[in-house]
């Protein structure tokens, strides 16, 4: 069933059951987002960037968690929305090593794009920058991971599938110290990392890089 939505000044028709974020993106209305993946059925809603205001709600909500089942009116550019988006971006930048020229994601990096969209720079404002040690984690046999680039969106974990349909990547640790890690022995019978680059390709910030032999 098609449902009609009012987004800012536009009317769009979307199939019931889609998420609001997808509906907007499909209609060419950009809303900042990092962790959302079209294929997965339930968004992790962890990056906290895709804020919108829905008429009748007193506070912004994340568009990826709104399932469309009735007509709604949505605003994507209100002061409250922009405030939360800038605040979230600033937090991500406060733990990000800004060295764009050295980074493979330069010019296609999601943080650069969102910063440009929100008309802010890549400095964390009044927050002090806090970086992790070490800067590069080389424990994986084929990959280098840069925790100070990583935004912990988890997309790499979601796309990682080996020959035995098991994932080689995980979140490890907790809280501020959460990192992307792999653990255990790797043998080429089960591990596909030498030929598969799914995680490297999906990483929006260049935090996973194939190690040069």
């Amino acid at each position: 069933m098609m449902i009609s939505l009012t987004i800012d000044d536009r009317q769009i028709q979307v199939a019931g059951g889609t998420s609001l974020l997808k509906a907007c993106l499909d209609s060419g209305i950009y809303i900042p987002h990092i962790c959302f993946m079209e294929e997965s059925d339930r968004s992790p809603a962890s990056c906290r960037l895709c804020w919108v205001e829905i008429e009748g709600h007193s506070w912004p909500v994340t568009a990826c968690t709104v399932t469309i089942d009735h007509p709604i009116a949505v605003k994507t550019d209100t002061p409250a929305v922009r405030h939360l988006q800038r605040s979230a971006l600033q937090l991500l930048l406060s733990v990000h090593r800004v060295e764009c020229k050295k980074c493979p994601a330069n010019r296609q990096c999601v943080l650069q794009n969102i910063a440009r969209f929100l008309e802010v720079g890549l400095k964390p404002g009044r927050l002090q920058r806090r970086l992790k040690e070490p800067d590069v984690d080389g424990s994986h046999p084929y990959l280098d991971h840069y925790p100070n680039r990583c935004v912990l969106c988890g997309k790499c974990i979601r796309v990682c599938r080996n020959h035995d349909n098991r994932t080689a990547l995980t979140f490890a640790g907790r809280g501020f110290h959460t990192v992307i890690r792999s653990f255990g022995r790797f043998d080429s019978d089960t591990v596909a990392c030498d030929s598969c680059r799914a995680c490297v390709e999906i990483c929006p910030v260049g935090a996973l890089v194939i190690r040069e032999a």
Partner: peptide, 20 residues
């Protein structure tokens, strides 16, 4: 801050700054 699961941006990074 110690017990934050680390999933979402505000809690993971924000509480760390608050604590600092």
């Amino acid at each position: 801050q110690k017990e934050s699961c680390g999933k979402c941006t505000f809690c993971r990074i924000g509480t760390h700054h608050l604590l600092e």
